[in-house]
Amino acid sequence: MAFRIVTNNPQVQEHFGERHQIHWIEGNYLAVLEFVRDEVHRGYPVLTHPLSGSIKPNETPYKSILLDTEKDQEISSSVIMIEDSIITAKKFIEIRDRTVGLRQDLLQDFQEIDYQLIKSGIESAL
């Protein structure tokens, strides 16, 4: 399955940037979700769940999502999934955004987890 990776995680860009198509987001977790939402509405289905992992959207600054490179007529499930994910993410971020001012070692751990989660998605896609 051909895919592109939408990410704001430098570790994902570093590991997969040469082998796979990457769309880099200069922004936060929600910015990644909102870019993906716009792409879904243009007709590109999501290939991984936007809320991958059980780390909460207000804890990690990093998010990577696989998008199809080809448009699909049937995108309703992707639309519902990304819109619901944005509602869920906002709910957590409104309670308390804990991603601001994180220590460097925590940033690296969050990058590693996001990298491992998207890697498991990429392994399924290949």
């Binding site: 399955m1 999501v46 290939l47 991984t48 769940h49 991958s52 992992g53 696989l66 999934m81 989660l117 998207i118 498991s120 998605g121 399924s124 896609a125």
Partner: peptide, 8 residues
């Protein structure tokens, strides 16, 4: 409970 939607 996998990440990849086709797996789900």
């Amino acid at each position: 409970e996998n990440v990849y939607l086709a797996d789900k």
